[in-house]
């Protein structure tokens, strides 16, 4: 186990090195920050001065070395656009995205697992057929369409819920939360649903397929032959086996939700990481883009490692194999 963990960490370090190289190359070759930042009619001297102050006149290797040392010490540079440290920008935006993702994940697990079980247990029932049909729509409709439709119905026509922003937030020092105010909670509902929808259908379909598989296995037949109650067999025995792959998928999905909540955040003007990234792209704000890249890479590496460990916790066979 320890050895497995160590090798995972080694792999993680390697992945992060590659990601940092890519994000550095972005610095160097994507667009010219000087051109974007300086006035339209700036003189050549002015531009050269700016270039020097940004450190862009140094040799490549020196720049990469500086980049690495700075990154490791937690300094991700200064946003070209906002003229503020990127770390501070991310720290400011991260709570918004994380809260949205937490809501979406809980929503998709809380609905996806029971619905998946329902579809597996009564595959020919009306409810299961309906859920299946609706889920097909859910999985094939693009996020921005769902988001806009939800805004149209619940914010514009019915006026029940706000259509954009986080509402009122409470500052807890380094974390600003929308969970503590009514308007904050109300603002979470629509973007939460929009973001959860795809994941929900995915989890539902996965649970359904796994559950059907597990229910036809010998050990479930053996449990039936021992006369155990049906509910016990379905929910205590079979569901646990069926949830194994859900762990992996949920882990990976949390990663991509955080990293790519961009569309949802744009539709709802959610002040999160995605919106930060979109703005960075349109202004060629390379330090922000590079930091974002690093952040997403780190996130996926972390989540994958956690998933691996979780797997060993749930499945005793893996514990033995790595021991």
């Amino acid at each position: 186990m320890f050895k497995v963990l160590l090798s995972r960490l080694g792999q993680a370090a390697l992945v992060m090195l590659v990601v940092s190289a890519v994000s550095f190359v972005m610095f160097r070759y994507v667009g010219d920050p000087v051109a974007t930042m300086s006035r339209e009619n700036a003189s050549v001297e002015e531009k050269a001065e700016l270039r020097r102050s940004l450190g862009l006149d140094q040799p490549l290797a020196v720049q990469y070395g500086r980049f690495l040392t700075r990154t490791l010490s937690g300094d991700l540079g200064i946003s070209y656009r906002n003229q503020r440290p990127v770390t501070a920008l991310i720290a400011e935006r991260l709570p918004a995205t994380l809260e949205l993702v937490i809501v979406a994940t809980i929503l998709s697990l809380a609905l996806g697992i029971p619905l998946g079980v329902l579809c597996a247990l009564k595959p020919d029932g009306i409810a299961a057929r309906l859920v299946q049909a609706v889920s097909l729509v859910g999985i094939s409709t693009p996020t921005f369409v769902t988001g806009i439709v939800l805004i149209l119905v619940f914010a514009v026509s019915l006026g029940w819920l706000p259509s954009f922003g986080r509402g009122q937030v409470v500052d807890l020092g380094w974390w600003s939360t929308g969970f503590l105010t009514v308007s904050g909670l109300k603002s979470l509902i629509l973007p939460g649903i929009t973001l959860a929808l795809y994941q929900l259908t995915l989890i539902m379909r996965l649970v359904r397929a796994e559950m059907i598989d597990v229910l036809s296995s010998d050990y479930i037949r053996f449990a039936k032959a021992r006369g155990l109650p049906t509910r016990y067999i379905h929910f205590r025995l079979a569901l646990r086996n069926a949830l194994m792959p859900v762990i992996t998928v949920t882990g990976l999905q949390i990663g991509s939700l955080i990293a790519f909540a961009i569309v949802t955040e744009t539709v709802f003007q959610w002040p999160g990481m995605g919106l930060l990234f979109i703005q960075a792209v349109s202004f060629v704000d390379i330090p922000v883009m590079a930091a974002y890249l690093l952040f997403v890479g780190l996130l996926f590496v972390l989540i994958n490692t956690v998933v691996d460990i979780l797997y060993a916790v749930v499945d005793p066979r893996l514990r033995a194999r790595s021991a």
């Binding site: 010998d218 050990y219 053996f222 449990a223 025995l237 086996n241 749930v314």
Partner: peptide
């Protein structure tokens, strides 16, 4: 009941 394959008739978890 006793089933054929002892490898699969017990729940691995």
């Amino acid at each position: 009941a006793i089933f054929q394959d002892p490898m699969t008739s017990l729940n691995p978890l």
